[in-house]
């Protein structure tokens, strides 16, 4: 009888020890915080890139009317010297600047005629569908080796575009009127194998109304 008591007591102690060491209780907030440690923070990366690289880099933006002229006369030279892309293929991106007179404020974009008038060229400034890699790649200072995986690169584009959609476009759209002159910087995507200069869409980085 005594032996049985000892046997059950030892078994119970063992069970308690094993049970105690098998279950861990942690705060959910601690677990969530631990799982994000070391993860790439695309939003923070995009903010730093915008402030420290892109904004100062806008001084290197190509004058859009001059670039369009060069693309017509010396396409290969224009792509070789002024376009950038993190990947390979036909899609390339240019950092641009210009001024234009607003001819229409549409649901998804703003139509402008480039100035001076002698340029005679209409382009669209995207105000709704701001997506893709144009703003991330156009400056040409990022390298694919800066990112450990492609999803990080994609997320940087998404964060830059989100910033444009939420911070750059709304105050401008609220004030812009047909007939106003806008000074803009931004990025454009062009296909070097199938070049179409009649469909230029600017993804804006800065938009400023220039009124007389």
């Amino acid at each position: 009888m005594q032996k049985k008591v000892i046997k059950y007591t030892v078994a119970l102690i063992l069970l308690l020890v094993v049970g105690y060491n098998s279950v861990y209780i942690k705060k959910l907030s601690e677990v969530k915080a631990a799982s994000t440690v070391g993860k790439f923070d695309a939003a923070a990366y995009a903010q730093t890139f915008w402030k420290e690289k892109l904004t100062p880099g806008l001084t290197k933006a190509n004058n859009l009317p001059e670039l369009l002229t060069l693309l017509k006369s010396e396409k290969e030279n224009a792509f070789k010297n002024y376009s950038h892309a993190l990947g390979i293929g036909n899609l390339r991106y240019f950092l641009i600047k210009g001024e234009g007179k607003i001819t229409a404020i549409n649901e998804n974009d703003i139509s402008v005629t480039l100035l001076p008038d002698s340029v005679g060229k209409d382009v669209k400034i995207a105000t709704e569908f701001v997506y893709g890699n144009a703003v991330r790649d156009a400056l040409g200072i990022l390298s694919i080796n800066d990112f450990s995986n492609t999803m990080d690169m994609n997320n940087v584009s998404a964060e830059l575009n989100k910033k444009i959609r939420t911070e750059i476009i709304p105050p401008f759209r609220a004030q812009a009127k047909k007939g106003d002159v806008v000074a803009f910087t931004g990025a454009i995507e062009l296909n070097q194998a199938h070049l179409r200069l009649d469909e230029i869409e600017v993804i804006p980085v800065s938009l400023k109304l220039v009124r007389d």
């Binding site: 390979i88 293929g89 899609l91 694919i144 194998a193």
Partner: peptide, 21 residues
């Protein structure tokens, strides 16, 4: 020093540009 992943651009084909493709 090769990139671990090298993306190759994918181009959209629609009715406006299908003749190019």
């Amino acid at each position: 020093d090769f990139p671990k992943k090298m993306p190759v651009a994918v181009e959209m084909v629609n009715q406006q540009n299908v003749s190019d493709y």
